[in-house]
């Protein structure tokens, strides 16, 4: 178990952060999304038998969808500076990702449209923050958002997805730390590619967890987990905008509040189920106690 934590939580994400820092100097922000998708791909590959192509397990398509989104971001690059250009890129990313998700609940045309629209809208809303607010706070906020989605997946009984999302969360954390330590004077923007992938991982991760869950977990928990990166917008609120430090802290706080609400909801739901089991065990224990006392009295 410790070995897994080291591989998925430290070595693999740190390697992806190093790759990002190295390739960024040469190819610019285009490849930042590819680096984040790499963390997801390697972790999911190490965690599950991919079983060739196409993968047998439908959830593994989240990896392919995220890589596809990373490629769209990398191809669009810096040229899609206009609002229309960004809108087209986000819509394209949403449509491709939704089409690539053969996950239960997301296979009909209307649900795919909902998924594409959600992903595209969240990405479009987050792009201005991801493109212009570089450095530690954005990466840290995204790390918290994806960690929240990972925790929700784990609490709803999908450990493999939780580990893969956890690896991306750790990669974001490492990139944030690296950007603060290695290049403190040069903000490491996520760019279009990085922002698209981070949104895709969060939204598709929540959609997958929702699609496979079997314990009737309320839908709002998955919606909050998927949309938690939008908490970054708190840093753009007028009271915090004046100070860079206050803005950075508010950005992280906004995500912590939304992701925290989702995780708290999932914990409460899981404990409600667990309490039912505890009651069942209590009944068994009561029965045993009663039986033993009856036996003891009969022996007397």
């Amino acid at each position: 178990m410790e070995q897994d934590l080291i591989i998925h939580g430290v070595l693999l994400p740190a390697a992806c952060a190093v790759v990002l820092l190295l390739v960024t100097r040469r190819w610019g922000t285009r490849v930042r999304g590819v680096s984040c998708a790499l963390a997801l791909l390697l972790s999911a590959r190490a965690n599950d038998s991919f079983g060739g192509f196409p993968p047998t397990n439908g959830w593994m398509w989240i990896v392919i969808a995220s890589c596809a989104v990373a490629l769209i971001g990398a191809a669009a690059g810096e040229r899609s500076g206009s609002r229309t250009g960004r809108g087209i890129v986000c819509a394209l990313a949403g449509c491709i990702a939704a089409l690539l998700m053969p996950v239960p609940m997301w296979q009909s045309a209307d649900t795919r449209l909902l998924l594409a629209g959600s992903l595209g809208a969240i990405a479009l809303l987050l792009l201005p923050v991801g493109m212009h607010r570089g450095g530690f706070s954005f990466w840290c906020a995204c790390s918290v958002a994806i960690a929240g989605t990972s925790a929700v997946a784990l609490l709803t009984g999908f450990a493999k997805l939780a580990v893969a999302l956890g690896a991306v969360s750790c990669a974001c954390g490492w990139i944030g730390v690296a950007s603060a330590l290695v290049r403190p004077r040069h903000a490491l923007h996520a760019g279009i590619s990085g922002t698209l992938v981070l949104v895709a991982v969060s939204v598709l991760g929540a959609a997958s967890a929702f699609g496979y869950e079997t314990s009737s977990t309320p839908a709002w928990i998955f919606v909050a987990a998927g949309a938690s990166p939008l908490g970054c917008w708190l840093g753009e609120a007028p009271p915090f905008r004046a100070s860079r430090m206050a803005s950075a802290l508010a950005r992280i706080l906004g995500v912590v509040v939304i992701a925290g609400a989702a995780v708290t909801g999932a914990v409460l739901h899981a404990n409600r189920n667990a309490s039912t089991d505890a009651d069942a065990y209590a009944c068994v224990n009561d029965a045993r106690t009663h039986a033993s006392s009856t036996n003891a009295s009969s022996l007397r």
């Binding site: 397990n57 999908f158 496979y212 667990a274």
Partner: peptide, 25 residues
């Protein structure tokens, strides 16, 4: 496989997830 039963509700949920039987898929 959705009728899997272990005697524990949480464990049943995990057995039905894609970690094991992936009953929805």
């Amino acid at each position: 496989p959705a009728t899997v039963s272990s005697g524990n509700e949480k464990l049943n949920g995990h057995l039905m997830s894609p970690d094991f039987f992936s009953v929805k898929e």
